[in-house]
Amino acid sequence: MENKRNHENHLEGKIALVTGGTKGIGKAIANRLMQAGAKVIVTARTQSGEANPAYHFIAADLSDPEDVIKIANEINELFGGVDILVNNMGANTSPGGGFSTLKDEHWDEALQVNLLSSVRLDRALLPKMLEQKSGVIIHISSTSSRFPIWESTMAYSVAKAALNTYSKTLSDEVASHGIRVVTVSPGLNKTAAIAAFLEDLARNANITVEEMTGKLFERLGGVPMGRMAEPEETAELVYFLVSQRASYITGANYIIDGGNFPVA
């Protein structure tokens, strides 16, 4: 019984920040880290639903450099830094239709939300990790970074591909200082965001959501497991990667997509 308790609480004493942690994959990650004993800080533009008293919530827009500084200052003042940083913030906000529909502002927003928000937060919180010579940074990317759909994810896919390269480069720089940096690339997860995305595509194509879901699976080359992931399944991978069990893992990009990706 004692061994089981220690196993379940092995993140006890760790401070973790999860961005975009009020819904979807981010919420599932925050819940899983808390279950493992971590003190969890969650940031998002607004609190979604009822506030969870188990978390320390910071309202912030990570595409705003001043808000990133505000987050770092509050965390350093209250907690002395973080041991675990999960950069989960990201969204496909650009219109579909390919290159001709994407204006400069669409490209800029995609890069701000999906790349630069993580770059800024890493830069703000890494100094404390470097001081303590330990820490884990997880960047939540997407299989879209390597398997883009020009009709609907062009800017998003490009930004996530840049995040992958940045994450690998950062891991090389800080590995010798005791800090691990890992990328997680989920495929389709059953979240409110993907539901809204499918509803929008279905409306534009004048077909049902079920039909559009089938077409999306076909467009992606099929999902051998035949379903989307539950956010909790993606969170379980993140939980493993931030734990001591993954102590020799850094610089890698873990794809979790039900077998969808077309190459090994």
Rank of each mutant, 00 (worst) to 15 (best):
G96V: 06
F79A: 00
R227N: 12
L125F: 00
G258P: 00
K128T: 12
L78T: 14
A91Y: 08
D64Y: 07
K39H: 08
I137Q: 02
T101K: 08
V263T: 15
A159E: 09
G24H: 13
E2T: 05
L220D: 01
G97V: 02
E12Q: 05
P95F: 02
G13K: 06
H56K: 05
M212W: 03
L33R: 03
G13Q: 02
I137G: 01
V182K: 05
R120L: 12
G98I: 01
S167R: 02
L116I: 04
V113W: 08
L198M: 05
V18Q: 09
E218T: 07
I69N: 11
T213S: 08
G37Q: 07
M1Y: 04
G222M: 04
G13I: 06
G98V: 00
V263N: 12
E230I: 08
A60S: 05
G81A: 13
A28I: 08
I140H: 01
W107F: 09
F99R: 10
A193W: 07
N52L: 08
E211M: 03
L130C: 07
D172H: 13
G20T: 07
E12C: 08
L241C: 06
I149K: 13
K133M: 02
T153D: 15
V86W: 08
V136P: 04
A229D: 03
R45C: 07
L62S: 02
V158N: 07
T169H: 13
V181G: 09
G251K: 11
F147H: 15
R219C: 03
G187D: 06
L116T: 04
D108E: 14
K39W: 08
D200G: 02
K190G: 10
G259R: 07
N164P: 14
E2N: 07
I149D: 04
G81H: 06
L17C: 03
E173S: 11
A205D: 05
I15V: 15
L198Y: 09
P127H: 01
D104L: 15
A110S: 09
D172N: 14
I255H: 09
G187C: 13
E2I: 07
G90T: 12
F261S: 12
V68A: 10
T153F: 03
A252T: 14
F57H: 13
L216F: 06
S48K: 10
G226P: 05
A16R: 00
E66Y: 02
T234D: 02
K190N: 14
S117P: 02
A54G: 13
L163H: 00
Y239K: 15
